[in-house]
């Protein structure tokens, strides 16, 4: 069967412009199960915009996004999530005044179709609660289960966001700068969590921290001014003089 051929996400000639500014210029990308691809590039290159185009937060002005052979470019964000595309935000976006447990409960309720139930308590579904516990265990969050998220250290908030996003059981996971803003002493928590993600998940990670990128990615894509400059293995990208000049070099200076 040809199903195997199409499994994963395939982005073709994706275009996006805000008025006259082109932020996605003919981008092509595939994400197969188990892929760990990193998207790097200077600030303003269009990385976040690209992520938003994939999740449906923004609608592309051209091109197509296929998931398992189906074009999903016309689907709304919530529908794409249900199709299996999920992302974490560059700036953590959580339910700040809810506890860790409540934060993780919501996506599970939504995913399992319980989100519109009105007559039982939100915490009265044992299978949901079991899953909440399991996610908290997986991300070392059990000790903070009943603490409101805004009281947690930023690194831990990042973990909550990862747990919450993974609770959607996505097949395509997009991480927009997961280590941005995290204290250096806590960044290993993020790296560990990313390394422990399910093996068959497709992960696209947008990241400035090159240590993290080189540790988790097996393919790096360099985006400049909305267009792909080059892509290759970490070793290839590390040696690429153009990339060093444009991006890595600039980072090393600062």
């Amino acid at each position: 069967m040809s199903v195997g051929m199409n499994v994963g996400m395939e982005v073709k000639n994706l275009q996006m412009h805000f008025g006259g500014i082109v932020v996605a210029d003919d981008i092509n990308l595939t994400l197969k199960p188990g892929d760990r691809k990193a998207l790097i590039g200077p600030n303003g290159a269009g990385k976040t915009t690209f992520a938003n185009l994939l999740t449906g937060n923004l609608t592309p002005t051209g091109g197509s996004i296929h998931l398992d052979g189906q074009n999903i470019a016309h689907l709304r964000e919530s529908q794409r999530v249900k199709a299996g595309v999920a992302k974490t935000f560059q700036i953590t976006t959580l339910f700040k005044k809810m506890s860790v447990r409540e934060n993780i409960r919501l996506p599970i309720l939504e995913r399992t179709g319980l989100g519109t139930k009105m007559f039982k308590k939100a915490e009265a579904y044992p299978e949901v609660e079991a899953e909440v516990e399991q996610m908290m265990t997986q991300f070392n969050l059990r000790a903070h289960a009943d603490i409101e998220v805004h009281e947690l250290a930023y690194g831990q908030q990042r973990l909550v966001e990862l747990a919450l996003t993974l609770a959607l059981k996505p097949r395509i996971l997009i991480l927009d700068e997961p280590s941005a803003g995290v204290a250096a002493s806590d960044s290993h928590m993020i790296t560990d969590a990313i390394e422990r993600l399910p093996k068959d998940l497709s992960v696209l990670i947008i990241e400035h921290d090159m240590k993290l990128v080189f540790k988790v990615a097996n393919k790096i894509i360099v985006l400049v001014n909305g267009a792909i400059l080059c892509e290759g293995t970490p070793a290839e990208i590390g040696k690429n003089q153009q990339v060093r000049d444009l991006y890595l070099g600039a980072r090393h200076d600062t």
Binding site: N57, F89, T93, F95, P107, L109, R111, G115, L164
Partner: peptide, 21 residues
């Protein structure tokens, strides 16, 4: 209920709610 929890979630962060589907 779950429906009520979703309402609170929308109050707290509509973008996050969209991102959980």
């Amino acid at each position: 209920s779950p429906f009520g929890a979703m309402a609170k979630g929308i109050h707290e962060s509509a973008p996050r709610m969209r991102a959980i589907g």
